[in-house]
Simulated scan of single mutants.
Amino acid sequence: MQDHIVVLTGAGISAESGLSTFRDNGGLWEQHSVYDVATPEAFARNQELVLRFYNDRRRQLESAQPNQAHRLLAELEKRYRVTVITQNVDDLHERGGASNVIHLHGELTKARSSRYPELVYDIGYRDINPGDTCDRGAQLRPHIVWFGEEVPMLEKAADIVRTADHLLIVGTSLQVYPAAGLVYEVDMDVPITVVDPGEPASVSRARVIRKGAAEGVAEWVDSLK
Rank of each mutant, 00 (worst) to 15 (best):
M1I: 08
F53C: 11
Y54H: 04
T21D: 15
V170N: 03
A11P: 03
R81M: 10
Y35D: 14
A214Q: 11
R81F: 03
V161L: 10
F147T: 02
S17W: 01
S17V: 08
L140A: 08
G171K: 07
Y116F: 12
Y184M: 12
P197M: 08
Q2G: 01
F43W: 00
I5E: 04
A206I: 05
P142M: 05
L49M: 14
A218S: 14
P200W: 03
A158N: 00
N129E: 12
H32F: 13
L92M: 10
I128H: 00
G198L: 01
G181E: 12
G131Q: 11
Y184A: 14
A98Q: 02
Q68M: 11
K110R: 15
W29H: 13
L224S: 07
G27W: 05
V82Q: 04
G216F: 05
D36M: 03
V203P: 02
A69S: 14
A111D: 02
T39D: 05
E107W: 02
P142K: 01
M1Q: 12
P200Q: 02
S173N: 09
V208I: 15
R58N: 09
D127P: 04
E62G: 09
D36Q: 15
L108A: 11
I13D: 01
S114A: 14
E107N: 05
T133D: 01
V34H: 01
G96E: 03
N129Y: 10
S99D: 04
A64Q: 07
I123E: 04
A15T: 11
F147S: 08
A15N: 07
R79L: 05
E94T: 15
G18T: 09
G27P: 10
V89L: 09
V50G: 00
I160K: 01
L73R: 01
A38Q: 07
